[in-house]
């Protein structure tokens, strides 16, 4: 398959094994600029592995990834254009939030263009002075979200972004996602909250046993499965697989 440069990210024939476990079995995907893709699937379906492969945390056994038309290699420069919010945010225990942000900025050569909107929206100023180990799980999630958006990336990966956030913070984050998409940022997210998926995602990719079982809009999914509610439609895909 020839990479199409209009895609932010294109994945081509991706395979990954962990020992005997064949986690990803031939994934082909394209991500359009300014789109939000939700990757769904039950536990162990390969969602996190797929995300980590995009980030270069996991090395694929076969297949190629192209980011902005460039093949991914050991060169880490492409990650300057990716923002990532992991499922569970854990940081060096003894650093403060301020120091962590300073470190990340420093590591990227202190770029001038920064998006610190979430910092204010989450009212984090006071929390940043404390050592990260003393922060609550929710606060750490907020710090993690700030980091994901901080460097104005063109591609943002959010792994269960609202898990652990209170409803207010959750709303702030979702609004931020919608705003940024309007500006052309590409999103990939995973979530267990289907309402969230329905609200944010342009496209749903359903992974099953390391393969793409379904890819398309929510409307397509409902039409294909014949269920008017997304939750039922997803459940349908899962039971179908089990059968």
């Amino acid at each position: 398959m020839i990479p199409v440069s209009s895609h932010t990210l294109s994945i081509d024939g991706l395979h990954k094994r962990f020992g005997a476990l064949h986690v990803l079995r031939g994934i082909d995907m394209q991500f359009e600029p300014g789109s939000v893709t939700a990757i769904l699937g039950h536990n162990g379906s390969g969602k996190t592995t797929l995300i980590k492969t995009i980030l270069g945390l996991v090395k694929p056994d076969a297949g190629r990834l192209f980011f902005d038309g460039q093949k991914l290699s050991a060169d880490a420069a492409y990650r300057a254009r990716i923002g990532y919010m992991p499922q569970i945010a854990r940081f060096p225990e003894n650093l403060t939030g301020t120091e962590l942000l300073a470190m990340l900025k420093d590591l990227r050569g202190n770029p001038a263009a920064l998006d610190e909107e979430l910092l204010g929206a989450f009212a984090l100023k006071n929390e940043l002075a404390k050592p990260l180990r003393t922060l609550s799980g929710g606060t750490r999630q907020k710090v993690s979200a700030v980091i994901a958006f901080l460097f104005q990336p063109s591609f943002i990966i959010l792994d269960e972004p609202t898990a652990g956030l209170d409803p207010v913070a959750s709303r702030v984050l979702k609004d931020k996602i919608i705003d940024e998409r309007e500006k052309g940022t590409t999103f990939v997210l995973t979530s267990h909250l289907l309402s969230e998926v329905e609200e944010l995602a342009d496209r749903i990719v359903f992974l099953l046993d390391g393969q793409i079982r379904f890819a398309g809009t929510a409307t397509d999914l409902k039409a294909t499965t014949g269920h008017p509610e997304l939750e039922r439609a997803i459940a349908h895909l899962m039971t179908e697989a089990a059968a």
Binding site: L55, A76, R79, I88, L107
Partner: peptide, 16 residues
Amino acid sequence: NARDFVELLLSQPIRR
């Protein structure tokens, strides 16, 4: 123990 930190940094533009 640094594993999470390593993951955080590896998601940044830093070579291994």
